[in-house]
Design a binder for these strands. Structure first.
Length: 103
DNA sequence: TGTATGACCCCAA
DNA sequence: GTTGGGGCCATAC
């Protein structure tokens, strides 16, 4: 009873990220009640259907960067989506003010 | 059963 | 600021 539960929890938390804000994998796991499960959050997002409504693009790593290689298609897509929501990039990184949100 | 891998995190040099 | 090593949990082979 772990895999479905964790996926469900992580999906809920990711879905609660407001537009124009971003969070980190570790933060997602901690908010779900499972600190240290950052990698599992990544596994959950990877398993998402391509037509999902979940704002997976609002999840970045602890360095504030997109967890994809720059030449990757997903990287450019995610960056474009975030910029479209008003998230400003400082090179490959984002502004720290975009972090976190209040529930 | 054991090893390798992954959309990760943290600390030290 | 960057780089390297260790730690972390679950899944795949």
């Amino acid at each position: 009873m772990s895999a479905p539960d964790l996926n469900f929890l992580f999906i809920q938390v990711v879905g609660s990220i407001p537009k124009g804000r971003v969070s980190t994998y570790g933060q997602i796991a901690a908010l779900a009640g499972y600190p240290g499960y950052a990698r599992q959050v990544g596994a959950t997002l990877k398993n998402l259907p391509k037509d999902t409504e979940l704002p997976w693009f609002r999840v970045l790593n602890a360095q504030g960067r997109i967890s994809f290689p720059e030449n990757s298609k997903s990287y450019l897509k995610q960056k474009a989506m975030l910029q479209g929501e008003g998230v400003e990039f400082r090179g490959d990184r984002i502004s720290l003010k975009e972090y976190g949100w209040r529930v």
